[in-house]
Design a protein around this nucleic acid. Structure first.
Lengths: 210, 210
DNA sequence: TTGGAAGTGAACCGATCCGTTTATATGCTG
DNA sequence: CAGCATATAAACGGATCGGTTCACTTCCAA
């Protein structure tokens, strides 16, 4: 599509502020092409905004990227583990949590944000940390919190909640994630997810269950 | 070091062929800067070779990179798990293997090659697969092989060797690796490694031990 | 209506980089 | 010494990209 930019935003009245347009366009392009791969011109085009306007709101490409990344991290942290039922028995909680977790990290979106964070964490040292704090660290804390309560109820026996949470998280990946990241497989079937999660729960409870 | 290229290779007689110089220079630069970050001029400079010579041996930058990556993968696969003693008891074998594995993936080199494979597996679809096959897949197979023998001796009870191997590999990371990749921590202490590995073995044997 | 802020499109600058070319130098072989 | 393949330095072409500038338009509020 060479020119074609004649779509105009005639339908929508004033529409959201230009700032948001830029952010949304940047989100799309960065997610699709990474940091280096994304060109500011393309972002401006997708955002249906002139490059001059873009640079009125964001000092440079790095700042724009950081803003997008932080937004994504926060959004993701929000929808993380709302549905954890602290009173339910371990087997059920672990299964649900694991499935949710695995579902996210194997999603197209989860993969892409991980890719970018890994690739760009040299250029943006804060990016990796920020992502970790608002992503994996949150799940770890929530899970540890649940473990504490389950232990109090005598349903689990754990000395190091944090390490146990880490172990469960890792068990849920069980190579599925590795093969996805490296493109050995393109997607995972529901059956594979079930098998991995069930076995993760089984192994976890073998150690920590009562 | 601006010019400084006056070192000349006077000391070494004919030295390895120019081809190898290029490959070695490319290895250094790619490992340090990634694919996009590495400039061909810098590679030629580090390799102490003219750019024209470089392009006589390699069609383009991508080809050169693939060659470097494949070499690294093979080299790494070789030094993988030579020291696995198939007759030793599980607790010992798992501990040693886990320590070796964790040592590699937390090393500067292991981190860097992982970074590059992740970042560039869009551009080079074969790269990720190649790395996986000659890296994680090898350890998985070796471990599964050991499990089979240990089961035959009644030391372990495992129905799915592959999945068990994956689980152990994941348990060995236990968030340590994640924090490294994202730059949350810069290096891991020996004590942390011991703690993670010991707990990985413990959890694994709780499920599969006899 | 008017004036100023906000937005636009396009051109432009400087820098980087890949890959090629050219003119020269070096070293090996007969 | 002659001849040829190989290597070198340096420059260049073509392309991309980040970021700026500028002349022009649109919109809104006083």
């Amino acid at each position: 599509m060479p020119p074609l930019a004649a779509t105009r935003n005639s339908i929508l009245p004033p529409r959201g502020r230009k700032y948001d347009q830029v952010l949304e366009g940047a989100r799309q392009v960065f997610m699709a092409d990474g940091f280096e791969g994304a060109s500011v011109d393309e972002i401006a085009r997708v955002a249906e905004v002139s490059k001059a306007t873009l640079y009125k709101y964001f000092a440079d490409k790095r700042m724009l990227f950081m803003e997008v990344a932080n937004n994504e991290c926060q959004r993701q942290a929000g929808a993380a583990l709302d549905n954890i039922v602290l009173a339910a028995p371990p087997r059920e909680v672990l299964g649900q949590t694991g499935r949710h977790f695995l579902g996210f990290i194997t999603s197209r979106f989860g993969q892409q944000i991980f890719r970018i964070c890994v690739a760009e964490s040299d250029r943006f040292p804060e990016l990796g940390r920020s992502f970790y704090e608002s992503g994996p660290a949150v799940m770890r804390a929530e899970l540890a919190c649940y473990f504490a309560q389950a232990c109090a109820r005598g349903e689990l026996v754990i000395d190091d909640y944090i390490l146990a949470a880490d172990q469960f998280g890792e068990l849920c990946k069980a190579d599925l994630w590795m093969r996805l990241i490296f493109g050995v497989i393109k997607e995972v079937s529901a059956a594979e997810i079930d098998r991995v999660i069930d076995n993760a729960v089984e192994t976890f409870l073998a150690r920590y269950g009562t």
